[in-house]
Design a protein around this nucleic acid. Structure first.
Lengths: 146, 146
DNA sequence: ATAATTGCAAATTTTTTGCACTCCG
DNA sequence: CGGAGTGCAAAAAATTTGCAATTAT
């Protein structure tokens, strides 16, 4: 027998319980689909993927659920330049190379970047919970197609 | 006699000439206003400021002009999370502390951040033209108002 | 002269809000 | 049962596109 919709990881249930979010079939599917993503999907992309499983789920539910997940720290938002929101399912610390033409974000890991010190000066602004190095430039694909 | 609208800095004329952008009164005013900004204004904010000088300028002109300026490198876009675009008039290399609650961006300079090396691994993605460290957290104002 | 730019308007796209119905706890 | 969550719909906000009149080179 094939398992069609295995339950999400325990962390999902924990986080939801911690923050008083109810477990619904929609949320389970959205969680699975967004965590499965290798890219940085938009809400619309997640919506399209979830529809293959829950054919009558609404975009609003997906959109609001992704925002909820972001609030409780299950996923994150990644930086863009005023385009659509993009979600980051990967919780491991990592850094970004962003193409300024096509807006693709390439993830990479770098131990020394992870450990850059927070300047004292910044402490006055607030409490740093996240560090990321953003490198920008033109990706190889875009520099070819000219 | 009072100088009402002094000409923009020479770099403005140079950059425009370099990229074939024509010098128009609108562009001169938009340039002056955006460069004067101490914050990271939205197009709408720049529009409101330019209207005080050119009372009949349209939002579209401001919006498109800011995008043009971004393309030719007079100003930059700063990273956000899918909100409105925000423009960065400061050309000096600097880094950002972003409040994840109110989305305020605090600029800071840091020499060692400026000089972090680009990992070899990243070269395969494309050519890096810009480096920025983005620190995220909750700003002191937001952590008070709770 | 002529090609770029502007202003206006409309069309898209993205995000937010309201509300009745449903369902989880 | 009661409040949180969903789906539908509409509203609001932001961005993009088309075009005729204007203007810089």
């Amino acid at each position: 027998m094939k398992i069609m919709n295995p339950d999400p990881a325990p962390v999902f249930f924990e986080k939801c319980a911690q923050h008083g979010l109810k477990i619904t079939p929609q949320r389970k599917v959205i969680y699975q689909e967004v965590m499965k993503a290798k890219d940085h999907p938009t809400a619309d992309a997640v919506y399209k993927r979830t529809r293959k499983i829950l054919s009558n789920i609404s975009f609003d539910t997906v959109y609001r659920t992704l925002l909820s997940f972001t609030e409780i720290g299950i996923i994150n938002l990644v930086e863009g330049y005023g385009e659509q929101k993009r979600f980051e399912p990967d919780p491991a610390p990592h850094h970004h190379f962003r193409c300024i033409k096509c807006h693709t974000i390439f993830d990479f890991e770098n131990d020394s970047y992870d450990h850059i010190p927070v300047p004292d000066e910044v402490r006055k602004y607030g409490n740093v919970t996240n560090k990321r190095v953003v490198l920008e430039g033109i990706c190889s694909k875009c520099s070819k197609s000219k």
